[in-house]
């Protein structure tokens, strides 16, 4: 276990100490007006790597892996079911529920996977890494806050967290992405305009997350818990001990 942890630490330090400075240098020297866009996408991808590689290093543990896959698939199906209502998607709700049940790392993966896979049905684009990261980090925070005891398994807590995180994290990151895509610099006016014009869409998205959490939180957590009790996937710290 100790050795595996070190590997991840090494990867993170290589990324932070070598890859990120090199990327910034490359962007500044060669890409002039496009440097913010390039550097931000690259750093986003570097940040995702340690999260994603957790599963790579833990080795293949079939049950946990397939559980994450099937939750992601449910999120993708949910997004497909509501495709006629733009920005009304249950993905964030399902990601948050998965995260509180399975832990922050699985939560991140459910988010990133459902972002990536659903774009195979909606079309990939330069927004894919941003969506993957946004959904992923919502899942990660839900898991962390739940583990710390701040986010309790109560309808009110989950709905408040869901609404806020969708509006602030997802909306915040995606609006920022659209600024970077079309502009050479980042200034106050531009950011303000992008965020203001994004508010209606982000509100719809946040409202849909709250609505879905309100209705599916209880039955879904119950189902996941039932599976974990039935098949002995009691909690993650115990799982880590026997790996």
């Amino acid at each position: 276990m100790q050795r595996k942890f070190d590997k991840r630490l090494i990867l993170s330090s290589v990324l932070i100490l070598i890859a990120i400075p090199l990327t910034i240098a490359f962007g500044v020297v060669f890409l002039h007006d496009r440097k913010y866009y390039f550097i931000s996408i690259a750093i986003l991808i570097y940040t995702m790597l340690p999260f994603l590689l957790v599963f790579e290093q833990r080795g293949p543990r079939a049950r946990e892996i397939i559980l994450v896959c099937s939750l992601s698939a449910i999120a993708v199906i949910g997004r497909a079911a509501f495709f006629m209502l733009p920005h009304f998607k249950p993905v964030a709700a399902i990601v948050i529920i998965s995260a509180v049940c399975l832990g922050p790392e699985s939560g991140f993966l459910v988010g990133a996977l459902s972002g990536f896979v659903s774009n195979f049905f909606y079309g990939q684009g330069p927004w894919t890494p941003w969506q993957m990261f946004s959904f992923g980090i919502i899942g990660f925070w839900a898991g962390v806050l739940h583990r710390k005891g701040i986010l309790k398994l109560r309808k009110l807590d989950l709905c408040v967290f869901g609404g806020l995180s969708t509006f602030l994290i997802y909306g915040g990151l995606m609006n920022f992405d659209s600024v970077l895509m079309f502009s050479s610099t980042i200034n106050k006016d531009l950011l303000l305009a992008a965020y203001l014009s994004g508010i209606p869409f982000d509100l719809v998205h946040a409202a849909s997350t709250v609505l879905f959490l309100f209705f599916i939180e209880e039955p879904m957590i119950e189902k996941i818990t039932r599976i974990r009790v039935k098949y002995g996937l009691i909690n993650e710290s115990e799982l880590l001990k026997d790996s």
Binding site: S72, A73, I77, L113, V117
Partner: peptide, 10 residues
């Protein structure tokens, strides 16, 4: 593997 399984589950 996870990516391909999710894709197949849909």
């Amino acid at each position: 593997l996870m990516f391909s399984m999710t894709l197949r589950f849909v």
